[in-house]
Amino acid sequence: MKGKDIISILDFDADELIDIFELAKDIEGNPEKYRDTLHGYVLALLFFEPSTRTMYSFQTAMARLGGASLVFSDTSKTSIAKGETLGDTIRMFDGYADAIVIRHRIEGAAKYAADIAEAPVINAGDGTHHHPTQAVIDLYTIWKYRGVIEGLNIGVLGDLKYGRASTSFIYGVSLFKPSKLYLISPEELRLKEEVKSDLDRMGVDFVETTDLEGSLKELDVLYVTRIQKERFPDPAEYERVKGSYVVNMELLKNAKEGLMVMHPLPRVDEISTDVDSSPYAYYFKQARCGVPIRMALLKLVIIGDKNGCR
């Protein structure tokens, strides 16, 4: 995996993801073993769009591996404000760093960066398109706590049209042959045609529905997403659909035993806080998987399978 660009979750197959999970699990169990793994290496974090957990978890991951990070996150104070192109910015950081993490509001920006850079490029979100490392974290959470990903009934709730985390999660679980995918959203926020045609091609059994309550009793996993105001081209469309679904304990009375309620966070009001202390709540555990997964990914793309420092 050394040198590999991570643009989409479909850049991996199921076996490669399991290898990443095994490594992340070992990192969680034996963090001291990895303390100097990336000593002497430099990671560029280029966040052209705001981020808290993704940026800080990458930075933490690099620090815990003994490496250093260059953080570029406020474009008003950098050469971007002087009119530098993305292409030139990438060329410059490619000369400084051993890997580049990029978040950008423009779709395809990460692939473009990967075409330019010699160093491996990791997509930390490009517009409404992909967010592959979040999907690796989500899948790891299911694998770690449920023991298996194959054959589950998986529900994905919320903004399936503009949500990059939900799109990457849907592609990711599809690599593990779910029993059935329940795509639950308002009519206006259904999955893009392009993604649906990919699911057909991958042979995934999926159903699109607006009915959360009716689907709930079938589900092993419910992946909840925020309806993201900032992605809507038309504010009136957002006003129509905001607050469409709320997951609370009243609703979960009908849930299957062992249901995992997940969320990439941040949440607004789509999961009520009364769920937080219930056995269904996995979203905080999921967030804690961010650092070990990103440590595993950074190690693999920067030095591959080998151990040790530079």
Partner: peptide
């Protein structure tokens, strides 16, 4: 994006009806 040098690239999905898919954004 005007100032970037990403040349539009498409894969042919279907000839009739004509559907092309962008190699960058996949739309």
């Amino acid at each position: 994006q005007d100032r970037e040098t990403a040349v539009p690239k498409f894969r042919l999905v279907s000839e009739e009806p004509l559907i092309l898919r962008c190699e960058y954004c996949e739309r």
